[in-house]
Design a protein around this nucleic acid. Structure first.
Lengths: 114, 114
DNA sequence: CCCAGGTGCAACCAATCGGTTGCACATGGG
DNA sequence: CCCATGTGCAACCGATTGGTTGCACCTGGG
């Protein structure tokens, strides 16, 4: 069945993925080097390979990372489209909310009168 | 002095705050109504007032919400500036990373030759 | 005044998270 | 071939999170 047809898709997974500094660092490395394996990532991060693997799973669920086998390695690379989608979604929301707040403020000023 | 590295700080608290759907809903209500109390928020949310209070604390740590007493009530209102800051930060990052990835891809194409 | 409505704090609980260790399994290059 | 290297899975652990209940404490309006 089709979920989240409520008009706004939940960028929930992306926000959750970005809420962790290690995950952001992983993304940064993947973007910097154009890809990496869980082992090589663990070498440049203060955690074990298994921890990195879990973070990659979270990033994968958010669609921010894709994996493909290369020989006996598994190479991960960043996919920034969900990130762009999320920034657009947040920006739209911020604009709507700001508009709403300004409208309320204007109303308040009008009702008290000069 | 003016630091050029100011744009580099990670808006960790904002991302953590936004990673929870209830917290986003709280922000939405505050923006829609221009403010609310923890009690009134709890009335329109599927959690208790105390849970709302904790969420408001998280939002407060992120600077997304400000509180001020009004009589015996405590009214909370949204401050969207940290949100705007975060979207700009994310967008800048996305651009940098995309540029980097494109550069790498171009290099790869160049090396294989047309 | 005095009590109802609103807040604040603390204890407690289950679930999740981030991390680790340990081990089994695959695989490809010397 | 065969072993070093890389990956996958599972159990376990402490800390954090999101939520609750319970109670004490203000405060202002009838």
């Amino acid at each position: 069945m089709t979920r989240t047809t409520e008009g706004e898709q939940a960028p929930d997974d992306v926000l959750v993925a970005l809420a962790d500094p290690i995950r952001r660092e992983v993304l940064a490395v993947l973007a910097r080097d154009g890809g990496a394996t869980s082992t090589s990532l663990a070498a440049s991060l203060p955690v074990t390979r298994q921890a990195v693997a879990k973070h990659l799973a979270v990033l994968g669920r958010a669609g921010l990372v894709r994996a493909h086998r290369a020989g006996r390695e598994v190479r991960y690379e960043a996919d920034l489209r969900p990130l762009r989608r999320t920034t657009r979604w947040m920006d739209t929301l911020a604009t709507q909310w700001e508009r709403r707040l300004n409208a309320i403020k204007d109303l308040a000023e009008g009702s008290t009168g000069p």
